[in-house]
Design a protein around this nucleic acid. Structure first.
Length: 336
DNA sequence: TAGGCCATCTGGTCCT
DNA sequence: AGGACCAGATGGCCTA
């Protein structure tokens, strides 16, 4: 199932003719990150151009010999890797590499955008990709619970939800960002994560306003979660009370399916004041009136009923689906 | 030094 | 044919 006979032979040709020498001569394939496109014709395959032609001839001869001596192969006849074909293939490969790089950069950009809207965004201490995704999941889940119950969770619970399944360093980071003393989350290595999570939080009176700590980027709990009232369309969509579906965090996180209440409308209602790390101006208006926010860790006026702004990078295409659309979709998802 | 994380290259597969 | 997506392989960097 390898497509046309030509692609088959080209792939083989690459394996036979090109890959080993390239790999040896190029050493580490990973070049220092370059501007897109530059790498495509950079020090990669191009380094070998001169030696290629000579060796190609050799290999082609060998190939012909093989054809003569060995029993005939089944399947489509292998096309010769002529110089022209090889060059075409290489050009294609180089282009594909460039595209792949660009694609991965896009993916990383998206992850960065995701990091920026996470509760603890820091340029200096970036969450890893996997931790970003885990925290995002927890964050969505936590906010879903808020939407569902319409109640601000106890601060401790909020942090518990956010840190479920996260690594210890990330948990500490989250706690620190939310002004829970990071020391309270220093977990014993031998502890189960879930137990550790509970224990670390449970033994200490939770406070988001620990006076001794530096201001976190995202401030207090109220910066994140405020009595969000789910729109009528979502009433009854989920039945779990707040905290009823904690994600399993006792295992290496997130192996199993997660089924948080899906009372998500595609909108959060957060204000991200007070984050010295946040550079880009975001512009996004939450769709739900009545969703309020307090000023971040005491700075600025508390939310007075004006439409809160949730900031999304402008370069992010964002398609919030309105409740009348999201409702059925979420119902479908939830019922699956 | 081992392990985690990352960027890149690569070949396979699917789709247009 | 060519692009998008994916997963495996590889090597560099960093930290405990």
């Amino acid at each position: 199932s390898s497509g046309t006979s030509e692609t088959f032979s080209e792939a083989e040709g690459m394996a036979e003719l090109v890959s080993p020498p390239w790999a040896d001569e190029l050493g580490p394939k990973a070049e220092p990150r370059e501007e897109d496109g530059a790498g495509a014709f950079g020090p990669g395959p191009g380094l070998n151009r001169e030696r290629d032609s000579a060796e190609e001839e050799e290999e082609e001869e060998e190939e012909e010999e093989e054809d003569g001596e060995k029993p005939k192969r089944r399947g489509p006849k292998k096309k010769k890797m002529t110089k022209a074909r090889l060059e075409r293939f290489r050009a294609r490969r180089v282009k594909a590499n460039a595209r792949e790089r660009t694609r991965m950069h896009g993916l990383n950009d998206a992850l960065d955008n995701l990091r920026r809207v996470m509760p603890c965004y820091s340029k200096t201490q970036k969450l890893s990709k996997i931790e970003t995704l885990r925290l995002a999941r927890n964050y969505i889940w936590a906010l879903s619970e808020v939407l569902e119950t319409g109640q601000t969770p106890e601060g401790k619970s909020f942090v518990e939800m956010l840190c479920k399944g996260l690594s210890q360093p990330t948990s500490n980071l989250v706690a620190g960002c939310l002004q829970l003393g990071p020391q309270t989350l220093f977990l014993e290595k031998h502890e189960e994560k879930s137990a550790a999570c509970e224990a670390a939080l449970g033994g200490h009176p939770f406070s988001y306003q620990s006076p001794g700590l530096p201001s976190p980027p995202y401030g207090s709990l109220e910066t994140h979660v405020l009595h969000l009232k789910p729109p009528p369309a979502f009433k009854g969509l989920v039945e779990a009370p707040f905290g009823a579906h904690p994600p399993d965090c006792s295992t290496p996180p997130y192996e199993g399916p997660l089924t948080p209440p899906l009372s998500i409308s595609g909108n959060f209602a957060l204000k991200q004041d007070g984050s010295p790390e946040l550079e880009k101006p975001y512009g996004f208006v939450a769709h739900y009136p009545g969703v309020g926010l307090a000023g971040a860790h005491g700075h600025g006026p508390p939310f007075q009923g004006a439409v809160p702004r949730y900031e999304i990078p402008l370069d992010v295409s964002y398609e919030p689906f309105p409740p009348h659309v999201a409702g059925p979709q979420l119902s479908t998802i939830f019922n699956e």
